[in-house]
Amino acid sequence: MTALTTRFDPSSAPEQQVANHIATRAAYLAPVLLVIAGIGWGLDGVASTSVAVGLVVVNFLLAAAILTYAGRISIALLMAATMFGYILRLGVLAGAVLALRNQPWMEMLPFGLTLIVTHLGLLLWETKYVSASLAYPGLKPTATSPGSIKE
């Protein structure tokens, strides 16, 4: 009888690992973006940029949490969770912007640019890391792993 995959292995959560890596890297990237925003738009730009970086990180962590949680219950639920998660995350983003847009310190241009640059930059950074670690952080080659070459 063939084994069927109906849900994710509860012991592993690669999405969560990827999202945690992205959040860590955001901490490295954020000061650079804040300095650039500070030079260009002053303190208002710094505040707007920090909100944008925070939203991007929350977006990644929320996406990973939703996928991991749903996948552990059922792969069928994963489909629904992906769709509703997409709507929910766009809603969170839109809600945050609508709530903050009238604040006197809110600068929309650095905010929008930071959203795109941070999202794509962090993703490219993580993809480079994942590609370099055999497409899966858990399989990152180490000196003691089977098949590795000791120098």
């Binding site: 990827v18 996928l67 766009l90 795109i116 999202h119 993703l123 399989l139």
Partner: peptide, 29 residues
């Protein structure tokens, strides 16, 4: 291969979502 597929899937979702994010930024600007 589920672990590798899940990692790639997550990255693929995030890359695809960047398009929606660009649309959102155009919207707010």
């Amino acid at each position: 291969a589920a672990g590798m597929v899940r990692t790639t899937m997550f990255l693929g979702i995030a890359f695809t979502e960047a398009l929606a994010l660009i649309g959102f930024v155009v919207f707010i600007l």
